[in-house]
Design a protein around this nucleic acid. Structure first.
Lengths: 134, 134
DNA sequence: CGGAATCCTGCTAGATACTG
DNA sequence: CAGTATCTAGCAGGATTCCG
């Protein structure tokens, strides 16, 4: 029986190959188009729905709503609604949500350090591809 | 002019709000369904195409091919082909690719530490939703 | 203001078949 | 063995509309 790596039973050699499926799971969770940006927008302080919408430029109401509900569902954010008129709802990161900022920042650091090189690699790669065609 | 956070001009408050778009970029890069698993499979040592296909269970030839090409394009992996019959191609992480393993592992650690709690939060959230319906 | 419901569409990724 | 080419279904996500 050879152990395989699947999105459901993922493993990274660095950690042995039992159950790193956890990594795959959370990447599905935070690897989508908006979650990280919303978490970032919530990072400093709690925010109201439309403030978040403005802060995270380009997001639709639908996707902001879905993203926030996902965060709340996973206990990464809280939703507090005030029964005023007009209604007011505030979202904030939970301690668990804030703890996510650290590995996220590590990734962001890596991204900043390697962005230029990666961009250069891409150009080289694409240029070679063009030459191969010509 | 209020600065906004978009997938193209992303920012995390933790790092000031100029150009954390880099994070969003690399999340698009590694946040997909297969890249992390392939990087993980390449983590220990170089691998041949069909070995990777076996290692990363469930991936199609097409997606493995596309994923590998993306990694090579970004200078995260190398492709070495031997003009033998039958052909033999080996993929390996570059130093840059290996350096990615560290922030990835930080994320994996976070995932392992919080997986159970998140799972519990989800069940609670879903139960409450069910009650609301009933 | 803060959503939910509906509709519609482009792209992703799986399956299959073919090639050097 | 190591891919590419083609076709297609499903779904993510945008736009729009309506509601408390």
């Amino acid at each position: 029986m050879i152990p395989t790596i699947t999105p459901d039973t993922a493993s990274l050699p660095a950690h042995g190959s039992e159950d790193c499926r956890a990594l795959s799971e959370i990447l599905v969770r935070i690897g989508d188009k908006w979650t990280i940006l919303v978490v970032g927008a919530l990072g400093a302080e709690q925010q109201r729905f439309n403030d978040l919408k403005r802060l995270v430029g380009g997001i639709s109401q639908r996707m902001l709503s879905l993203t926030l509900r996902g965060l709340v569902r996973d206990g990464l954010a809280t939703r507090t609604q005030f029964p005023t008129i007009p209604p007011k709802v505030e979202y904030a990161l939970t301690p668990r949500g804030r703890s996510l900022l650290q590995p996220i920042d590590a990734l962001a650091d890596w991204a900043r350090q390697h962005r230029a090189e990666i961009e250069k690699s891409r150009e080289m790669f694409d240029d070679e591809a063009d030459q191969a065609v010509a």
